[in-house]
Amino acid sequence: MLTAAASRRLVTGALLVPTVAFLAVAFVVPVGILLKLSLTEPAGPLSTYADILGSWVYTRVFRNTIVLGLMVTAIAVLLGYPTAYMLTRLKGFALTLAVYGVLFPLWISVLIRTFAWILLLEKHGPVNRMLVGTGILDAPAAFLFSNTGVLIGMVHVLLPYAILPIYANMLRIDSRLMLASDGLGASPWRTFRRVYLPLSMPGVGTGAVFVFLLSLGFFITPALLGGANNMTVAMLIENLVNDRLAWPLAAAASFLLLAAVLALLAVTARFVKLDTALEAR
């Protein structure tokens, strides 16, 4: 006969084992095998990493990805901050509608959102027709297969990840602090700069880290909207696997990408609340 404590432990184990075993077999082992592959080249354990970091072509892809990510992050935060502020001023039905407006795009496949931008940004598409029609442009611009197209597409996909943490943070700001600042004679601009902005910075930080982290691994959007010069690390990995069959190099590039993500998470762990953004959906 089992004691009560032992049978309780047995039930706990039975509840957790399927998930842990599944993740071990379907996730930890495959990632481990890929790591081993990147480390067991005949030329030496770290030769694949040296190949990638020593090649001007490959490092340029990494640099491009980081620069693109920083630009997307900056634009997403600049667009997201006032939008999040507007959400804090809304009530009732308007608030529900606006929040759903931020959440719903997250449910739409990245592939569809990117395809929609192809239709809109085409040479003879609506965006170009509008810009030429209103006289802003003299001739249709080549948005597709360029930096501009990738930027527009990626900001569109990642913007909700900037808005949601900033909004969550702004909701926690005590509005009496602004009244106090106001009462003490500060100008609206000074109140914003000295009181509201610093208090909303944790949200901005979380949103920025989130957008940047996700942008580092982007594949579909840059692959469809970008040109030959817009290769990201994810596209490089795909290219190494499918076109060049250079598995060890692809594995090394994968772990350099993963290392960058983990390093950024470790540095920002103090103020980034991962769960806020995960539960957002």
């Binding site: 495959p30 994810a234 994968s254 772990f255 990408l257 983990l262």
Partner: peptide
């Protein structure tokens, strides 16, 4: 355990995809 369960959302999908493809 929560970390293990959330890990596939943190590791870039392209990395998991290549690892799964290879194995």
């Amino acid at each position: 355990l929560t970390g293990l369960i959330l890990a596939p959302l943190i590791v870039p999908v392209i990395v998991t995809a290549v690892a799964l493809y290879y194995t």
